[in-house]
Simulated assay, not measured.
Amino acid sequence: MEIPTEESMEKPADAMMESPTAEVMKPQEEDLSATSSEDMSSEEMMVPDFFKVSLTDVNTGEAFKISDFAGKVVLVENLAMWCPNCKKQQEQVKLLNEALGMDSDLITIGFAVDPNENAADLKKYINSNGFDWIYAVPPQEVLDEISRLYGANFLNPPSTPIFVIDRKGTVHPMPFGVKSADDLRDFVDPFLTEGM
């Protein structure tokens, strides 16, 4: 068996850099860097597709999109009703919301990511637990994109996946595991105090 040399190992990387995909991506990157975000409308800015998907708040029946909350800070927790870690995490989110008060620029959304769960059961669950923020059962296309962008563990409810979207639309995944209300506040405070 021939042991690869440094020279032979560099060749595949060089070939990859010259692939059609890399060439297509290069001009897009240059175009984005040449245009300041101030010159771009919110529709033109690069945002994940799932921000534009119409969802339904299971508690109110009202349609919404994550893009509706542009300029706010959005905390998204992926959960399942059967998950004890998720419930512990939601209790901490509830404490965070109570500490920040109703005037906060923080929007909280719970995504039921188990495909076996439905809106009617989710509504009963949140009402029985006193969780009064936005909850939705996202379509598979949203779940697929979240998994592709942030990793499959973001669809694993016991890992208590949370990501925060800042005022500019950038997604900031939080570490896995149950996070205390204080840890959540420490994470979101810089985004809340940051201006547009």
Results as ranks from 00 to 15, higher is better:
1 M>F: 10
4 P>A: 14
5 T>F: 15
6 E>K: 15
7 E>N: 15
8 S>M: 15
9 M>Y: 13
9 M>V: 15
9 M>Q: 12
13 A>H: 14
13 A>M: 13
14 D>A: 13
15 A>V: 13
16 M>T: 08
19 S>R: 02
21 T>M: 04
23 E>R: 04
23 E>Q: 10
23 E>F: 10
24 V>W: 06
24 V>P: 07
24 V>H: 10
25 M>D: 09
26 K>F: 01
30 E>K: 11
31 D>N: 06
31 D>H: 09
34 A>K: 12
35 T>E: 07
39 D>A: 09
39 D>F: 01
40 M>T: 11
42 S>N: 14
44 E>K: 12
45 M>Y: 12
45 M>K: 10
45 M>F: 13
48 P>D: 11
48 P>N: 13
54 S>K: 15
56 T>L: 10
56 T>C: 09
58 V>R: 06
59 N>L: 10
61 G>Y: 04
62 E>W: 14
64 F>W: 00
65 K>N: 15
65 K>C: 07
67 S>E: 15
68 D>V: 01
69 F>A: 01
73 V>M: 02
74 V>G: 00
74 V>E: 00
76 V>I: 13
77 E>D: 13
79 L>K: 03
80 A>H: 03
81 M>D: 09
84 P>H: 08
84 P>G: 05
84 P>F: 04
89 Q>M: 04
90 Q>A: 04
92 Q>T: 04
95 L>G: 01
98 E>A: 05
99 A>F: 08
100 L>W: 00
101 G>R: 08
101 G>A: 08
103 D>R: 09
103 D>M: 06
105 D>G: 10
107 I>E: 06
109 I>Q: 07
114 D>R: 04
114 D>T: 02
115 P>N: 04
116 N>I: 03
117 E>V: 01
119 A>P: 02
120 A>D: 03
121 D>N: 03
123 K>P: 00
124 K>C: 05
125 Y>L: 00
125 Y>K: 02
126 I>G: 09
128 S>G: 09
129 N>W: 04
130 G>V: 03
134 I>R: 01
134 I>P: 01
138 P>K: 08
141 E>N: 15
142 V>M: 15
142 V>P: 14
143 L>V: 03
144 D>T: 07
146 I>L: 03
147 S>Q: 07
154 F>A: 01
156 N>W: 02
156 N>C: 13
157 P>F: 01
157 P>T: 13
158 P>C: 08
158 P>M: 06
160 T>W: 00
161 P>M: 01
164 V>R: 11
165 I>S: 03
165 I>N: 04
166 D>A: 03
168 K>M: 11
170 T>Y: 10
171 V>M: 02
174 M>S: 01
176 F>G: 15
179 K>Q: 13
179 K>P: 07
180 S>W: 13
180 S>F: 11
181 A>K: 12
183 D>S: 07
183 D>G: 14
184 L>R: 13
184 L>Q: 12
186 D>F: 00
189 D>Y: 11
190 P>I: 02
190 P>Y: 09
190 P>Q: 05
191 F>K: 05
192 L>K: 10
193 T>A: 14
193 T>D: 12
193 T>P: 09
